[in-house]
Amino acid sequence: MVSATPIDRHADKFVHLQGVEQAFATKQGRFVALRDIDLAIAKGEFITLIGHSGCGKSTLLNLIAGLTVPTAGALICDGREIAKPGPERAVVFQNHSLLPWLTCFGNIHLAVEKVFGAKEGKARLKARTDAALALVGLAHAAAKYPHEISGGMKQRVGIARALSMEPKVLLMDEPFGALDALTRAKLQDELLKICEATRATVVMVTHDVDEAVLLADRVVMLNNGPAATIGEILPVPLARPRDRLALAADPTYLACRQAVLTFLYEKQRHPQPLAA
């Protein structure tokens, strides 16, 4: 299947998931979290991934990141099978995963150093790190340690770390979950700007329907687990750049929003008894 992907279709199948299944060996036996996941993501596309808690969104993101290998099926990125993680597919972890012994600056600098250290001088690396911090509005917290900053600030450092790597694919697991509405809106706008500038491909997990529609080219909705599949894929045919205020009354926007809400609260109304 890998070699069957023609070279000239890289652009619209930049990230390609084919028949992906992920099962875990648990004490109660084999637990199938995801199955039959087929998804082709075009280069530069912004995908949001939505579904009830525990349906397998993080699991899917981990697969694309290469942190886990699927029990069946294949994942391809840029014409190559995803075998292991790498900085070209940066991850914003759901729990931010900052290293507690490094400052905010240090956490980002580690990533910058790893990605650009071979070809750029020290001053340039520092400038990149500072720029990433400034981008998420945390220039003042550069010298602080993760335990000294709030949950939302930690998430922003995690985002800055991922963005600083200038990845081809940006994988974000509820990156704005712990943020207040204002900061969230500001970072969403920043993210859209960055993605337009860098043409990065983004897969972002979210619980927020508005966020899913506002940011996405397509909203991928997962059914409830176990053995979750893709329930619906909703294209969001809204022009970019998008203006959140204007969109609030836009019929297309409202229709998309309605579609996602319907999926979540009518078709998938009965989530699994809270498992995880």
């Binding site: 942190l67 993680p85 995963s97 290293l99």
Partner: peptide
Amino acid sequence: QDYLNVARVLALSEWQVFTRILLPA
């Protein structure tokens, strides 16, 4: 595992994993 996941995403070498992640942790 979170810290090691960060190391893997950054593609740190085994030596870097040791000095940058394991040793301080």
